[in-house]
C-alpha cells in the first residue's frame, strides 16, 4: 500500500484520542455553567484541534513515500508489561520482597538474548539493593512480607 506508516500511525493515534475526548466531552460535560465557561468548553476546543491534526496526518500519509517501521519485540513488550503488573498486584498483598523478586526477574528475561543465570543473579542483587535503600535506609512503611504471607 502506498502510505507512510509513521504518518498514518500518528494520525490514527491523534484521531482516536481526539475523538474519544470530543465524544466524552459532548456526552457528559456542559459547555457553560451559569453563563460562565463550563467544564466542557476548553477540552472540546482542544480535542477538536487534536482530531484535526489526526485527519491532516492521515491525509498526508497517503501522499508521502512509504517508510518502514522497526519490528516490535513482542517477547520484550509482554514481559515488561507483566513486570509492572506483577509489582502492582503483589506489593500490597504479598509484600515488597516477592513483588521485587518477581518484577525484576520478568524484566531481566525481557531481552530476547537474556540468559537465566544472569537474570537470577541480577534479580537477587537488585532486590537486596532496593530493600536496603528504600525500606531500611529511607524507612518507607511497606511490609517486606505482606499480609497474605504472614503466619500470624
Amino acid at each position: 500500500m502506498n502510505t507512510n506508516i509513521k504518518d498514518m500511525g500518528s494520525g490514527v493515534m491523534f484521531l482516536v484520542i481526539g475523538l474519544a475526548f470530543t465524544w466524552n466531552t459532548w456526552r457528559h460535560l456542559p459547555l457553560t455553567t451559569d453563563g460562565a465557561i463550563g467544564p466542557g468548553s476548553f477540552p472540546l476546543g482542544i480535542s477538536l484541534i487534536v482530531t484535526g491534526f489526526g485527519v491532516g496526518l492521515i491525509i498526508k500519509a497517503m501522499r508521502t513515500a512509504p517508510e518502514g517501521l522497526t519490528p516490535i519485540s513482542w517477547r520484550g513488550l509482554t514481559l515488561i508489561v507483566l513486570s509492572v503488573l506483577v509489582f502492582a498486584l503483589f506489593i500490597e498483598r504479598l509484600g515488597v520482597l516477592p513483588a521485587l523478586l518477581a518484577s525484576t526477574f520478568l524484566a531481566a528475561i525481557a531481552p530476547s538474548d537474556s540468559n537465566w543465570k544472569t537474570a537470577v543473579i541480577v534479580t537477587v542483587a537488585l532486590t537486596a539493593f532496593c530493600i536496603g535503600v528504600f525500606i531500611y535506609a529511607l524507612g518507607l512503611p511497606y511490609p517486606v512480607i505482606g499480609p497474605w504471607l504472614r503466619l500470624t
Partner: peptide
C-alpha cells in the same frame, strides 16, 4: 509477623547522617 521496624530503620538512617 512484620519484618520491618520503622523506628529502628530511622535510627539507622539518622546515625548514617
Amino acid at each position: 509477623m512484620m519484618k520491618f521496624d520503622h523506628k529502628m530503620s530511622r535510627r539507622v538512617f539518622l546515625a548514617a547522617t
